[in-house]
Design a binder for these strands. Structure first.
Lengths: 344, 344
DNA sequence: CTGTTAGCGCGTTCAA
DNA sequence: TTGAACGCGCTAACAG
């Protein structure tokens, strides 16, 4: 085995050519499939490639006109959340089927970070963008700032930005979840949600209200707490709910974090000697592991983030590879959700 | 607002130069910080940049000698697992502090996919690689195949490959976890683990054996099941353990998936009328959410994947930016773990 | 302070 | 079937 020509540097097509005793063009042709290159020459070239550990420089490659980077930029709000991880997996999966790859970034929900990330993606010549918006100002997402790079939003929309988006059936899921509790005889149903400014937060609350109204149950504002972003504050909010003179007999939780927090508080009360029968049952928008083992009944409004990712990719891909990417109206896909008692 | 010069194409530095009435070089200098450019000219340039929505092409940029791509390739086995998601976050965090970005790939534990991913990363001129190995053959990771691109392994090592690695204190954690059960008076302790070929699997089993031996408890092979890769098979394995004539009174689970599976089976038995006091308590290597709410006592051998990621990045960064990257022996960092009863 | 030249690695075009 | 020339977007080095 012979080492690389210049240690500390990736070999180039020229070095391969030199070693094989041919021109760089012949190497290029061989690597492109070998059309119009004599088999024995191809042999020599491929051996030189192996010996030098040569690899095409994709950056240089995508520089040529007509070539594309094969990169799709994906920006999510929280890489540590399996929900978004699986979402990204779905995008990757669908995109890989077309020979493209994703480049993944984490915004942490910070608009400045998002802006930076999008700029970076564009600088790397991505062919398209998939974004879970963090909710701040969105000038950097306006079509003229994106050039001809198509954008698909996921989970949330941005008002005033007319682009493709995939959403969950937030309203319907919350509506059905709340209705299930009402039908089970509950009339005092607590609501735990994230900040009202968030897109999904507003929609899920809407579903909750809709169900109450339909059954003629008046809204009790004391039962509604929707400023919790993490499990700890959700836990605290649940404590306040359960400390009311007339505490709720059931809780609708608008997302995973609030559900976990609620359960922490419920667990605390059980350890303090409370009776499980006196504690509220739970409907959770978003599934979570071991939901079926909880000390109170849990029903889950479930959906597959991976499927959401695949759908987002599908929208994006349909905008690629034809000249009229910007033509055609923005499309909105709303994914259905399932409602099921937790057992696993 | 004037549209882009050639719709359907990102503007280039030339177009900006043309519009600003200067040479491309002046644009380049302005964007590089503006040294040696008259302020009023800079003004004109920046305005042209804004108007055209121009952005430097990072790919072309990194083509120049001496320039680097600023990219670190990170390949993990499962993006949908929050453990690895947080690991990647840790890498990103540490790497961002040096102005670099990560490009993230998912191997799904498939060696072929890993090989492909590494090739792609190298083709995109990454400066370094962080990899959670999937365990197959590792020719593609040999130094001569990587050129001068440094590699750091995480979670697992590959025997015969002498590169930097960050590991957990698998042996110590399993040892201490098992010891805690022994000290609580248990003598029949079940072991649930992943496939014995997996690096961590072997190490954690070693810790389990070590603890038994130290207390003079003979190993009962019937209590050891270590072929489960997912929660479902772990659940089935737990059933077999609990169906033994002399079932274990406690279980040591070598990872998250096995813990979840064990708890599913425990939940099933409770729903079938079993008494919680007759079911085994659990020590779990790897934390999981709501561990404190389980119907049987759970103790967790815990560690912060994010910290692991940061540490991996630290190793990698120390190999960057100096000529003697390959010099110096491979370093091995073993991260400590905590042992604590689950409460949250 | 500003512009020209040259070349990074690659592949299309054209000529041999 | 093969190779030479050229240019993709950008910037270091060198004029001016």
């Amino acid at each position: 085995m012979v080492g690389v020509a210049h240690p500390g540097k990736q070999p180039t097509i020229k070095e391969v050519a030199l070693r094989a005793g041919v021109s760089p063009m012949t190497v290029s042709r061989t690597l492109a499939g070998g059309a119009n290159v004599r088999p024995e020459i191809q042999e020599r070239v491929l051996e030189a490639v192996r010996e030098l550990g040569y690899r095409r420089n994709e950056n240089a490659r995508s520089l040529r006109p007509g070539q594309t980077s094969g990169l799709i930029g994906v920006a999510i709000t929280n890489l540590g959340n399996p929900y978004y991880g699986n979402f990204a997996l779905g995008v990757e999966e669908a995109v890989a089927a077309t020979g493209r790859r994703i480049i993944l970034g984490n915004t942490g929900g910070d608009p400045a970070r998002e802006r930076q990330l999008v700029a970076d993606f564009l600088g790397r010549q991505v062919e398209g963008l998939v974004l879970v918006p963090s909710g701040g100002p969105s000038d950097h997402l306006r079509p003229e700032r994106l050039g001809d790079v198509p954008l698909v939003l996921a989970s949330r929309r941005i008002y005033g930005l007319d682009v493709d988006a995939v959403l969950l059936d937030d309203v319907g899921g919350a509506y059905r979840g709340t209705l299930a509790l009402l039908d089970a005889g509950h009339t005092r149903i607590g609501y735990l949600g994230n900040v009202s400014s968030a897109f999904t937060g507003g929609r899920r609350y809407e579903g909750y209200l809709h169900a109450l109204e339909e059954r003629g149950i008046p809204l009790d504002p004391a039962l509604v707490l929707r400023e919790q972003q993490d499990a700890d504050s959700a836990s605290e909010a649940t404590r306040r709910l359960l400390d009311l003179d007339e505490p709720p007999t059931a809780i609708f939780s608008a997302n995973n974090r609030n559900s976990i927090g609620a359960l922490h508080e419920i667990g605390r009360r059980l350890r303090a000697g409370a009776d499980a029968a006196d504690l509220p049952e739970l409907v959770s928008f978003d599934d979570f592991e071991l939901a079926g083992l909880m000390p109170v009944p849990v029903t889950v409004v479930d959906h597959d983030p991976r499927e959401l990712g695949r759908e987002a990719a599908k929208l994006l891909l349909s905008r690629l590879g034809n000249g009229d990417r910007h033509r055609g109206p923005a499309r909105l896909v709303e994914m259905p959700v399932r409602l099921a008692p937790a057992v696993g």
